[in-house]
Amino acid sequence: MNLDPRPSVIEERLKNVKRIIAVTGWKGGIGKSVTASTLALLLARKGYKTGLFDLDFAGASDHLILGAKGLFPKEEKGLEPPVIAGVKFMSVVFFSADKAVPLRGANVSDAIIELLAITQWGELDFLVLDMPPGINDAALDVIRFMRKTQVLAVTTPSMIARSVLQRSLALYKKLKVPVLGVLENMSAVKRPAAGALRLDAGLEKALGRPAALLKTAFARDLALAAPRLNLPVI
């Protein structure tokens, strides 16, 4: 017998998490990480108990967006995520010493199961997942182990991104994973519109500074879009 005991406790680790929002988009570089991180910051600022889990092991970047430096999870019957700007934050970067994480698919899955089994999130209103691009081990593990996950899809005005988005939405429908809605990032619209996150020249300078990030036009557009996505007013 070679029985993996870790999956048995994953549901328990998440039992006090009310909602899990997976920020997805199958193309790379379309703003999933900035959207996931900013959404977590907005929710925390509004007083919701919020967690952020960076599942993009190869391209982990939420720590840069949040300006998380010198932090490490606390060992207490597992690992308690450190808190930054009111957000409980977990990422593979805590364990990689800022080096590359060259993992094959099965290794990614093992690492995700390990982190899900040992991370003590405690009580959360929202756990925001920053997903890697594509439908891969991370996405399939989230669907398998985090059954209350709701998808928030990100795309861009590009025809290529939209085409990939359509395929992803069709698959989520087939897998019966609820989709809250679609955000169009880098949108060219002039005025705030439903689900549009306008291109914000000031965003780059705010990265790494949560307070500044929350004051960006990007954050304002995201907050405006939230109620239409079955998220609270933030």
């Binding site: 005991p5 870790r6 003590q120």
Partner: peptide, 16 residues
């Protein structure tokens, strides 16, 4: 005490 989380998974799996 990160071991605690894994010990819990072992005992829970064995019982189940």
């Amino acid at each position: 005490m990160h071991e605690w989380a894994l010990a819990q998974s072992v005992i829970k799996t064995a019982v189940e």
